Amino acid sequence: MEQVLLVVDVQPCFDPPQWQVDDIKQLAPTMHSIATVERHNEDVTPFWRQLGWKPSSDDEPLVVTDRVFVKHGYAPPVELIRYLKDAGVQRVLVCGIQADTCCLAAGFLLFDAGLHPTMLKWLTVGSSLDRSAELGARLWRHHFGQNSVIDRVDDLGR
């Protein structure tokens, strides 16, 4: 398997736009897909103590994928990297919630593991600083190369 779709934190507590959920639901069954779901555990990540906010402790992804990885914090768990490496994945197509935080954290972890993170911009929303994901796309291109962002579904096969 050369590539996989990674759906980052598309779950109820982050209130993703319905168009995003619907469009990812269409793409996910066309390839091997995995998801992360953020769950609260204050002993692992101090969301409440430092930010006065916390994700749900029992959310489930809103998109059905082949595998789900629970995470506590911004970055995916190391088990996800092990899974991708064992499967022989080279490129990871990333979409989801918060292009400039959680998706970017996934990108760094993937890059550091020797994989090729590629943002699917049309399926990704940014944080409250920039819901358009433009900031996230600029950061991806800066850190992972000009070809690390796919802007439109029509460019996916390239």
Rank of each mutant, 00 (worst) to 15 (best):
N147W: 00
D59Y: 04
Q18A: 13
L139G: 01
P61L: 07
Q50E: 10
V149I: 12
V89Q: 02
Q98P: 00
V149A: 12
L109K: 14
R131L: 13
V44A: 13
E60V: 11
M31F: 05
F14S: 06
M31H: 06
A133T: 12
E42W: 04
G145K: 05
R49V: 06
G52L: 07
Q146S: 11
S148E: 09
W122E: 08
T118D: 01
A105C: 12
E60T: 10
L129G: 11
L109Y: 06
V68F: 02
D23S: 15
N147Q: 12
R91F: 02
G96N: 02
T45Y: 15
I34P: 01
V125W: 01
P16H: 01
M119F: 03
C103K: 00
D154H: 10
V8E: 00
G114R: 09
V92D: 03
D23Y: 08
W53Q: 11
T36V: 06
D66H: 08
Q146E: 14
Q90H: 14
D155E: 15
G114D: 10
L80G: 00
W122S: 09
L104V: 07
P46C: 08
G96P: 07
G114K: 06
H143W: 13
W53G: 07
D23E: 15
V4L: 14
F47E: 02
I81R: 06
L93G: 08
V10I: 15
D86F: 03
P16F: 01
A137V: 06
L5Q: 06
S57Y: 03
D58A: 13
R82G: 15
L156P: 07
T124D: 04
F47S: 08
L109G: 06
L27G: 05
T65N: 11
L123E: 00
D22W: 04
Q11M: 00
F111H: 14
T36Q: 07
A113H: 02
P117I: 08
T65D: 10
G114E: 11
G145M: 10
Q18D: 13
T101G: 01
A87V: 02
E38K: 08
Q146A: 12
F69G: 10
L51P: 00
Q90S: 14
E42P: 02
L84I: 11
V149G: 12
L120I: 03
R138C: 09
T45K: 02
G126A: 05
R91E: 15
I34Y: 01
R138T: 11
F69Q: 04
H143N: 15
S57W: 02
E60Q: 13
D66W: 08
G126E: 03
Q11Y: 02
R158F: 10
